[in-house]
Amino acid sequence: MIPPLRRELIATWGFVARNIHLTKRYWGWELVWFAYSLTSSLAVAYIGLGTEMLSGPGVDGDYLTLYLLVGTLVWSYLSQIFYVISEMVAWERWEGTIEYTFMAPSSRLTHLVGTSLFAVVYGVVRTLLILGAAALFFDLNLAGANLIAASLWLLVGSISFTGFGILAAVMPLLFPERGVQMTNVVAALLLLISGVYYPVEVLPRWLQFFARASPATYVIRGMRESILKGVGLGAAARPLALLTLGGVAMIFFGTWIFSLAESYAKRTGRLKRSG
């Protein structure tokens, strides 16, 4: 008889290992998406050098390039976590395995945590690869950067976006045909309000109100401060702690909402329908 906690840990690893196997089997697609993400990041970062050329020496092109590169890489990482988690239901529907997974005795929290763990590891590896490739194109000066603080910001951001992803995963569960498109809308809104490519202060006042609710706003700002200005952990401790608390709360809230949605899907027969 295997103790319950060990069973859940084995199941958690089951979700991680399954996604590793799937990533290996779909390596062609992975290559395509990597190329897409890299070119997108490069295209955004070149705007920095382009602006210097167009506006004259008043603009620090290298600073702007790094500013944009941090934004695009952090967004690439956070959105990757968001998509992997939010699309787990849609993916399993497409494969036809959703009923098998939902019939297993492992808890839904295990399911969500396992998927999230993979998403974080996958996101880190992918973002580091993009950063490495981007470094070949730009003269990146990270001498003054506080990389420990930056790593912590990214870690805390992962927790927040895991909660968002779990909450967004409800949509493909409830709306088999259009749920995935709805998660795309959520991601697009977060991109708009979180200051990925610009300071949120340039947004209209009413949009800034929403920007304050997005964890990405704080993660991206914190990353920029630690990389561009070398701000250390001392100054970042309070916002990091608040963001962590908010992220953990969001994970539990998202899991609770997900369980309600699962129950509704099982009452109405929406689990089985393929979208």
Binding site: R6, A11, W13, G14, A17, A104, S106
Partner: peptide, 10 residues
């Protein structure tokens, strides 16, 4: 994958 969901070690 199926076995791990049921707590059977790899």
């Amino acid at each position: 994958y199926g076995a791990r969901l049921y707590g059977v070690p790899g």
